[in-house]
């Protein structure tokens, strides 16, 4: 489901404040950051591997994924991106994109020019530090995903991913009472977790049977958060949130 971007809720500020303390001035500067807002339908590429972008995309609403495709045409999703994420922020410093970013659901995306981003970072070095911190946390998430894909069983791997999504969505205000919209398909989960869609379906059914998740359409509800964390061996430390208590 697509919820339109509300101007009174700036997900970029919400995201940065979840990992960094901003002053009123810095918040205002981020509010004033010029962006071109576009709605992009589901399953569309926003940027592609090999592109040389002159702007970054801020996800305002909806879900996207960062992915790479092998020579045999197999897709590996390396990250799910939600409101407040800037999945191609690296393009500010790395000229050629080494991954693609595509929408999973219908999304509102704000394009911010590199020029505007360089300007805000020069004028507000602490905002530059906040962006830097964000990319370091992205690195921590990649490390956790690599550990999951290489070492965790599919059942625990999926539980871990669902825990991560719930905490990240909570941090940007998109979770109510352990319940959230999660429009990710079983095929996309498979591409992210390195397992077949057939097996994703088995594991989801097992998690449902074990009372760890409830799925209704794209709505995910987690009736037993502590148990799901335990099954996923989930320690939210790697997300480096400022107020871990509030979200995990």
């Amino acid at each position: 489901m697509h919820s339109p971007f509300r101007p009174d809720y700036n997900p970029l500020i919400r995201k940065l404040e979840s990992i960094f303390t901003l002053t009123a001035d810095e918040r205002q500067a981020l509010e004033n950051l010029p962006m071109q807002i576009t709605v992009i339908e589901e399953n569309q590429d926003i940027v592609r591997e090999g592109d040389r972008p002159s702007r970054c995309c801020l996800i305002l609403s909806g879900f996207t994924c960062t992915y790479k495709v092998t020579a045999q045409g197999k897709r590996q999703i390396v990250a799910f991106n939600i409101a407040g994420d800037v999945p191609d922020l690296q393009s500010l410093h790395l000229k050629i994109l080494d991954n693609s970013v595509g929408t999973i659901s219908r999304c509102s995306v704000g394009f911010i020019t590199h020029e505007a981003l360089r300007d805000i970072c020069t004028r507000y070095p602490r905002i530059a530090a906040a962006f830097w911190r964000g990319t370091l946390v992205d690195g921590a998430i990649f490390r956790e995903w690599m550990t999951s894909i290489g070492q965790r069983e599919a059942y625990n791997r999926l539980a871990h991913l669902l825990c991560e999504m719930l905490v990240r969505l909570t941090a940007v205000g998109l979770v109510q009472d352990h319940s959230c919209d999660l429009p990710i398909t079983q095929s996309e989960l498979g591409d992210a977790l390195g397992i077949t869609t057939v097996h994703v379906n088995r594991v989801l059914q097992q998690l449902r049977t074990d009372g760890l998740i409830e799925l209704k359409g794209t709505r995910l509800n987690i009736p037993d958060w502590e148990k799901l964390k335990q099954v996923g061996e989930f320690n939210p430390m790697y997300l480096h949130l400022e107020d871990l208590q509030a979200v995990a």
């Binding site: 079983q186 077949t196 869609t197 057939v198 994703v200 379906n201 088995r202 059914q205």
Partner: peptide, 14 residues
């Protein structure tokens, strides 16, 4: 031989 409970490809050989 996937059981009919599998929602992706019920009854198929996987």
């Amino acid at each position: 031989h996937l059981s009919d409970r599998n929602e992706v490809a019920p009854g198929h050989w996987f």
